[in-house]
Design a protein around this nucleic acid. Sequence first.
DNA 1: CGAGTTTTTGAATGGTCTCAACTGGAGTGG
DNA 2: CCACTCCAGTTGAGACCATTCAAAAACTCG
Lengths: 249, 249
Amino acid sequence: MKPATTLRPERERCADCLIRHRAVCSHCGPAELEFLDAIKSYRTFKPGEEITAMGQETDFLGSVVNGVVSLSRILADGRRQMVGLLFPSDFIGRPMRAQAPFDAIAVTDVKLCIFSRPRFEALLRDTPSLESRLLEMTLDELDAARDWMVLLGRKTAREKMASFFLLVARRLAAVARAELRDGVELELPLTREDMADFLGLTIETVSRQISALRKAGAIELTDARHMRIPDIAALAEIAGDDDDGGMID
Amino acid sequence: MKPATTLRPERERCADCLIRHRAVCSHCGPAELEFLDAIKSYRTFKPGEEITAMGQETDFLGSVVNGVVSLSRILADGRRQMVGLLFPSDFIGRPMRAQAPFDAIAVTDVKLCIFSRPRFEALLRDTPSLESRLLEMTLDELDAARDWMVLLGRKTAREKMASFFLLVARRLAAVARAELRDGVELELPLTREDMADFLGLTIETVSRQISALRKAGAIELTDARHMRIPDIAALAEIAGDDDDGGMID
DNA sequence: CGAGTTTTTGAATGGTCTCAACTGGAGTGG
DNA sequence: CCACTCCAGTTGAGACCATTCAAAAACTCG
């Protein structure tokens, strides 16, 4: 398949990219894609590694190709709140503002497809298909952030946990391009501490609620990180959303 | 009711618009502005009036000219959480998605400058200065939503109230194009109930925290709706935000 | 003034947090 | 193989903050 003459055998092409159909570049035509191909690069991060730090200038923007990234903010006394959770195809970075408004940390092994900030911002100005897709994605993220605000402001610890499991299940299913159905098994990408920071709880409360949901039969656990949802609708009921629960993918 | 004495007695022109420098149209040139002038219209709402309802199709988009609009979502059992608070120059509506994801309610007398949805969406495609400004505003709203998530997830009732007063003071000062300084007086646009829904609290807790802040001298009240902030920095201290960029290790 | 509404205040309850101890698995080395 | 540490997660007991329920006070507007 590969031409023997190739100089960079491991070079990934945009056309073959697994997240192409959902990422910021998904509306680009062949010519635009070829240009992106030429200027993109990849970077990987280990779990726990800092990708950008709050208040620090970041010189790149890009897409999550593999893994999960958390965005979080820390108050002066150390309290932490997660404000975003990025899955493959999500966009990372804040265009038109060099200073990162939040910490971005790899929660699993992460691979990013990145562009230098000035190059990407110039591209954005010249490429309507990029800009309109980014607007669309930003609007979706805003919707998701607002659903999350409802969770943080008004839901009980039990409801928060149930909502969280559904959110992860939906996102992982979307990444795998699979239907979400009863009996799904999933690997939780977050530690108890990360979940607590996501949900505005403490790790103890997270742990207690997981135990309670397990005893109630709403979830099944093989170990701390691997779970199974026997009945999606039942879990959604516990989550307290009025119907399908929002949480935009 | 309306006297038809003059041809265009109350016709407002975009060029004279008070929110022009901050609204979605702020990057438009004279020709674009003239076009907007021709297709825009105004609509007013009374306090408490519903502007759009969750799940309902909305046929317009636009800008808040006067007043304050709340965006909120209600859970199945009636718990309500505010997820957005719009001031003059803020954009209202969800481009590229006809179904409103949240309730929008006028909290004061409100005047909107609106465009029909199909017309505005077509305009967006053809007018880069509109689209890029909308992207910028959406990114800012996302940042604001994330700050708000920190408040909802990790702040105490006291900190929430202090943060809220600062937010309102900042937004009203920005609208008035005034500097925010010690001794500002402001009229709270929200009822205690609205504040509670904004902050993820109950009205009783809101009331108690206001009383406590008053007794502590952090705020002064003439009546339930009119207040004065004698010392911005002191209130910011109570709000718990790290003031100087958050570079603490 | 009285009726209705909003806001404030009080007392008791309860959900989540804090502090603390325990469990279990992974890795290390004797 | 066991003993040991280390770390993430779990469980328990008590404290505390915000909620709930209840009632009084203040304000609005006929």
